[in-house]
Design a protein around this nucleic acid. Sequence first.
DNA 1: TCATTTAACTTGTAATTACAAGTAAAAAAT
DNA 2: ATTTTTTACTTGTAATTACAAGTTAAATGA
Lengths: 238, 238
Amino acid sequence: MSLQKTIPQHRRLYEILRKHIQDGVYKEGDLLPSENELCQLYGMTRPTVRQSLSTLANDGYIRKHQGKGSIVHNLQREIGILSVSGTTSAVGDRNLKTKIIVKPLLMPWPADFMFTLTDLENESGCIYMERVRLLDDVPIFYDISFIANLNLPRITARQFEDRSLFQILRDYYRVEITGGEQRIKAIPATVKIGKLLQLKKNHPVLHMERKLETNNPGLFLYSSIYCNTEKYSIFGRF
Amino acid sequence: MSLQKTIPQHRRLYEILRKHIQDGVYKEGDLLPSENELCQLYGMTRPTVRQSLSTLANDGYIRKHQGKGSIVHNLQREIGILSVSGTTSAVGDRNLKTKIIVKPLLMPWPADFMFTLTDLENESGCIYMERVRLLDDVPIFYDISFIANLNLPRITARQFEDRSLFQILRDYYRVEITGGEQRIKAIPATVKIGKLLQLKKNHPVLHMERKLETNNPGLFLYSSIYCNTEKYSIFGRF
DNA sequence: TCATTTAACTTGTAATTACAAGTAAAAAAT
DNA sequence: ATTTTTTACTTGTAATTACAAGTTAAATGA
């Protein structure tokens, strides 16, 4: 079974423009080519172009202004609440490092998992991994991830050091995040969490439990994330 | 200047369906009338109906399935991260009470405000209020709100006890939330916060700083929210 | 009876046309 | 020179048509 037969035109243009925005071809505040120009450039009609732009706007990559145009709005932002916004200065990706605590391994799901699982998920077991992410060599996230072992061949062999989990899923398996839900709490740091995040025991830590939906029906990503919010806040747009 | 001259058809249908979903006319899991049926019912063409449904889907009220239909998906959810999801049982609105700590009053903006303000906002001053919201008589939120004093006549005279701030803005001033941003941290409770949320000093507390955008350009709602996440988590979808 | 095929739905994609409404810069008038 | 008007753009709204693709249940076959 092939993953995608034909890509719709509006999707194709969406991906082109999104990539251009992320790669900096169009920068924050820039005006995108007008709808009619895009029609000519990519040989589509306006409704098709508008569908692409509409999706881009919904995803927060651009803002549309009647009579003016589409303005790039590529704020610091990932899925839901993810990005880290430093209170002192803006943070580029260059200072972000990832340390693997537990390499990806196949195992059964924990007995009392934080989310309810489908039978299919339960049967197939999960890919488990633990990572700590550092910003300027300060540990910010302690990340425990669970993915159902569904249609992800050889994933435990991939290199997770530099690339993000999302990027790997996207590049190798064409898995895209389409939405999700999360629960957030403030909890006192346990000894283990305190050690990993270089905080004292009982220091306030942000705890997120997340379930991410993908374009692959039935495939979800689960993660339990502990955040050191001493210096940085969790930033989110909606 | 009137707030709205003519409402587009797709917007009108969107509002109708959204209201029906929220009022329970269409319940969770229900199948909405098909696009062609909606065309007939409301005298529109399919592109117009599809635009309404597309917006509803983007806002999370429905999910569309090719060949099947649009399924209502009105999960517990407000704007961004707001809803409270009890770990023990689902929480209805009936147990939610609001206690006013500081009644709405007009005052200048704080000197070192958490977000940067426009000149217009700075000149007009802000409407300030403090509230504590209780769930089953347990204080959950300590909410400090700031709104620019722009086109909101007599707002300080309104009753804020039962109704939410959002509801008042919507009903009386036609102000709708269109998006926003927020920063989240885990912090130790101060003495004041501990007192209001019935927690010991230094107990972990969730702190959210939020800026909400509205359909009224230039009008933003700001709030600083402290949450007791002992028994309840903050739940969010995206 | 059971499995397969067909038909009748559903939403998805896409081109075409027309006009409305907002924006900004050029042109004209003062 | 400054203000006003016009013009040429931009996106927004909306109807129309056609076919593709996924879903479901009825009809048909063995």
